[in-house]
């Protein structure tokens, strides 16, 4: 039985974005990736740019993002998405090019690529999922892991004398003159989702206006890596992540 057999067309108040595929997502229940994927799909559909969008997926949990959004994708080597997006954007200046990267991909192995793409002001959008952990490989320390936070490679908690400090890379990115819009958002409440959608829309619009690099960090949860049920993970994020990674716009030019 199809949904149309149950709900009449005129009574339908919400439906899945046509840019989202029917593939069942591999993400864990409660994971932020699904929320962000949905928002990106909605923005692409609402802006009518499905045929003009080329995305670059990272290495990490979202390596398979190309299974879920019905647009052209390139899957990058670990950390190299901004370099790949650079070439796509330069060779296709009329396209909407975005990278989708996690914290290990963007803020550790790919630090050089993201800094230089942003500093050149590549006309791309960067969606940066920061859940302070390596999810795909089984919950190891990320560059953004908070001090004291337990991971598979910091089993007694991150020690700054041993592991260094958590990296606020978005604050660094905001200093670069090539960026036009740098913001930190989340997706854990309906209000946060609405704000995040506005931010992603603005970023894509910036690309359309050839304004340079737009950078959106999404402070996220990793239920399996954090070893918490979804509701607890959201609470933990609000209590621990937000004070260190405060939400809001850092730059909007």
């Amino acid at each position: 039985m199809d949904v149309k057999d149950i709900i009449k067309e005129e009574n339908l108040v919400y439906s899945k974005s046509k840019v989202l595929t029917d593939n069942i997502m591999h993400y864990c229940p409660g994971c932020t990736h699904g929320v962000v994927h949905k928002i990106i799909a909605e923005v692409i559909e609402e802006m009518g740019i499905q045929d003009k969008t080329i995305a670059v997926s990272p290495v990490g949990c979202s390596v398979l993002a190309y299974n879920y959004l019905d647009i052209d994708w390139q899957e990058a080597a670990h950390g190299r998405a901004p370099a790949i997006a650079t070439a796509i954007s330069r060779l296709h200046p009329e396209k909407y090019v975005f990278t989708y990267q996690g914290d290990g991909d963007l803020a550790s192995i790919g630090t050089a690529e993201i800094m230089h793409a942003c500093n050149r002001g590549e006309n791309i959008t960067v969606i940066f999922i920061n859940n302070a952990i390596y999810g795909m490989t089984g919950g190891q320390m990320a560059p953004t892991t908070l001090e004291g936070m337990k991971t598979a490679t910091t089993p007694y908690g991150r020690r700054v004398d041993l592991n260094g400090y958590p990296l606020k890379i978005t604050e660094l990115i905001a200093q670069l003159p090539g960026t036009c819009y740098v913001t930190r958002q989340s997706g854990h409440t309906p209000a946060a989702v609405r704000k995040l959608k506005k931010a992603i829309t603005k970023a894509f619009e910036n690309t359309g206006k050839n304004k340079g690099t737009s950078f959106i960090e999404v402070v996220s949860t990793c239920n399996s890596g954090w070893k918490m049920p979804p509701v607890k993970a959201n609470e933990w994020m609000v209590e621990n992540m937000f004070p260190f990674y405060p939400l809001g716009d850092m730059k909007d030019e």
């Binding site: 190299r80 070439a87 330069r90 230089h116």
Partner: peptide, 22 residues
Amino acid sequence: MVVLQAESELAAINMVYGGAGC
């Protein structure tokens, strides 16, 4: 033709990946 001095050889070859993928 686009010509770009990349930040590293790694970035340069990945730019090639991106362009070739198009």
